[in-house]
Amino acid sequence: MPHIEGSSVTEETMTQISMVVNGTAMTGDVADQTLLVDFLRDDLRLTGTHVGCDTSQCGACLVHVNGLAVKSCTMFAREAQDAEVATIEGQAMADGQLNAIQQAFQTHHGLQCGFCTPGMIMATAALLQDNPKPTEDQIRNYLEGNFCRCTGYHNIVRAVFAASGQDVSLIAAE
């Protein structure tokens, strides 16, 4: 372990980290306290992942790490060493068309200002991976950690329901 002078750390410890982001190997030098979201946004310039609250409540920063949904504002970049990371930038299809989840959010007006949308899309992708045909209750429960301040959630729930191939008319209008 490197020796640290004095009673408080004044110099940042830099560490080289590598991870696979949206299928591409990425490397960078980060201070140890760098959060994953800051590495993605500031170093890799993948600014689709948003910082909403920075207190792990709102879910705007949600990405997948080794297939699991995590809040990238509450994980150190170093902890993603060698991991497979998926962000909103990797979600569209190869030809640039929206994927089924993104298209459903557009079709069902599951966004207004769009700030929460990257997190919503990534949370939905994680949900449908585990549970391809979720009920309305399961959708609302799963999205508990993703805040939207525009839509009132109903259209988001509809979009997720539609993205899972289910008949949206079964969800009551409220």
Binding site: M1, P2, I4, S7, S8, V9, T10, E11, E12, T13, T15, A31, D32, Q33, F76, R78, E79, Q81
Partner: peptide
Amino acid sequence: MYPFEITSPLTIAAAVEALENEEAQPL
């Protein structure tokens, strides 16, 4: 955040050793 160093031991024994530093905290 204040700057700090992260160390990532692979065994319990190594973690316990790293935590002998009284300025260290488990994550």
